[in-house]
Design a protein around this nucleic acid. Structure first.
Lengths: 348, 348
DNA sequence: TTGAAAGCGCTAACAC
DNA sequence: GTGTTAGCGCTTTCAA
């Protein structure tokens, strides 16, 4: 049937061992021999059998990405970043979509990964300890996005800083009654930190966060819409709102539209994400370099797998505080748009 | 190091062949034996070595998806649908992101796929003949999304019908000067058909399509914005616009906003896609069942690979015209929203 | 620098 | 119903 290393060896007049060495660029091969082998292999259109190679070497040249979703902006963007780096390094990308951490069966039985990949990248929003522990149980090199884990390279933004930045921006605009649309009542670390940033900024400005001005949007558009609706029904509604994610802010904007309230002009809104369509909706947001996060995580993983230092990508982009070499923090930037305008001009 | 089939065989007091049969659910195994083998395997936490299994059997249990992008709504949604079906069937998903057909290096060297997967799903928008032909050259079972190819199961919408539906809707609303935002000047089959639908509807209503009312948006938000801007600068601008994709319609809406023109009230807009965020922007669109398209394509591929008939998914959803068993057409539906309101009420 | 040969762990005939 | 055995195609010592 198909061409094997044996065929190439025979045609080149060498042993299969030499073909293997020559084609993989290993040292101790006569340049002339190598050239000849290469030529013959090309002529024969020889392709190494991945199965055989894997079985013999124990390496798969494949990385798995475990992600709750692939059809949402954040995740598909991360995935795309990961894909870039892996492709550059000639590593295959296996994708496992595992669903919402809260409701779904969970990580693919870690047993499934065994022998199938050389490393894993786990993307999560809420921390999901048991599953992750399981995952690491098989001793595969790993890297995380969105969660810190001791001993595992993890790529995160500074959630507290992001929350503070968004809130401070609203404060600077002159707002005092600032509502907050959180994710879930049961806060993940990431969510808790965003809330912390909000509180810090408020208190720093001498403002007391009003508990009645918090609503939950469950990180979805629909959730954000009802959260905003409930905020609007307060006796004394906020003049500005900080939403923890762009999706929830989108929903909030929708709620405003339904009430005939103009975002920006009547109520200020700022959130976190840097969603592609935030620009379209003229939404002020704290942008995170999502694709970069994927790239950096992939880079960190490859570094571990190949036992080399992290490559270009992560060195140039990330801020790695000394002392915690695995905790990679990527920078965020405030993107000001029409949903937040100074109070003076707002009513003009 | 790790547990092999040998260990299980010894522990269960049978041969490796029997273990293999028992664990894979093959017939001709004493139920009692099977049970014992299963128990022992579980106790030992035995996992089949994929590499060894692949090498011996020639099957990989893996499917590759070739897609231009993974970080765009349409593609990530398709991918998610594919992922569903593959996961149900215990097939691994390998993703190759190949970039824009126009500018990128192209399909992963088909040689890369050889021996690595049992089948391929190709997702494309514009037809890209040479690459696809290459792809099929290696004789891998395949299925396509968005492109027809002789002898290959392909999942598409009826583009002409979709274009007609959107345009007719605008006509029914009383519009006569209806502009069109196309993709590229060099039309793909799919684009050409959408345009055909537009023309058909216009002519059916006794309206002559005005060439000066066509602009190109290159299927991007930014492109849609400038296309709409140019339409607005016409001496006699359209009162309604049909955009070939939601992204371009989004851009068009943005252009309207910048000009202080209200979509729906001042100019009607309808497009094709059923993008998740179309609802948010109150955009009328012809929805395609994107995730379903992925599921159906995966289903069709598995059917070919396993030599069985297509499963539930594709039978229930798709319309397969007799005589062309491979040309699967999925239904579209017009979703009417605020961007298209009757002319009478529009100015109210 | 190159070759010989022993696996890698499993599957699939084939025999019993 | 179960065991024996010959590979699958490559990598990797170990010698030469």
């Amino acid at each position: 049937m198909s061409i094997t290393i044996r065929d190439v060896a025979d045609a080149a007049g060498v042993s299969t061992a030499t073909v293997s060495r020559a084609l993989r660029g290993l040292p101790h091969v006569d340049p002339e021999t190598r050239e000849r082998v290469r030529r013959v292999a090309a002529e024969l259109d020889y392709v190494v059998s991945p199965s055989a190679s894997r079985l013999a070497s124990g390496r798969t040249g494949t990385v798995a990405v475990i992600t709750p979703f692939i059809d949402r902006w954040f995740f598909s963007t991360v995935l795309s970043g990961i894909s870039d780096v892996l492709q550059e390094n000639d590593v295959d990308l296996l994708v496992y979509e595992v669903g919402d951490p809260g409701t779904s069966p969970g990580l693919p039985a870690e047993r499934r990964l065994r022998g199938r990949v050389d490393g894993v990248i786990v993307v999560t929003l809420p921390t999901d300890a048991p599953r992750i522990a399981d995952m690491l149980g098989i001793g595969l090199p790993a890297s995380f996005i969105g969660v810190r884990w001791p001993g595992v390279p993890s790529v995160c933004i500074d959630d507290a800083a992001a929350g503070r930045m968004a809130t401070q921006h609203l404060i600077n605009l002159g707002h005092e009654r600032i509502g907050i649309i959180s994710g879930r009542p049961q806060a993940s670390t990431s969510q808790a930190n965003r809330a912390l940033g909000y509180v810090t900024a408020m208190e720093g400005a001498g403002l007391a966060p009003d508990p009645s001005l918090e609503a939950f949007g469950y990180f979805t558009v629909a959730g954000g819409e009802s959260a905003m609706t409930s905020l609007l029904s307060q006796p004394n509604p906020p003049t500005a709102v900080f939403a923890m994610s762009d999706d929830m802010a989108f929903g909030a904007i929708r709620a405003l539209q339904r009430h005939g309230i103009r975002p920006g002009a009547d109520i200020a809104i700022a959130s976190i994400d840097g969603h592609e369509l935030a620009e379209l909706l003229d939404l002020t947001t704290v942008g995170q370099p999502v694709a970069q996060m994927g790239r950096v995580a992939a880079d960190a993983l490859l570094a571990r797998m190949l036992g080399r230092e992290a490559g270009e990508t992560s060195r140039s982009v990330a801020t790695t505080p000394p002392g915690s070499p695995y905790e990679i923090t990527v920078p965020t930037t405030l993107i000001v748009r029409g949903s937040t305008v100074p109070i003076d001009r707002a009513t003009a």
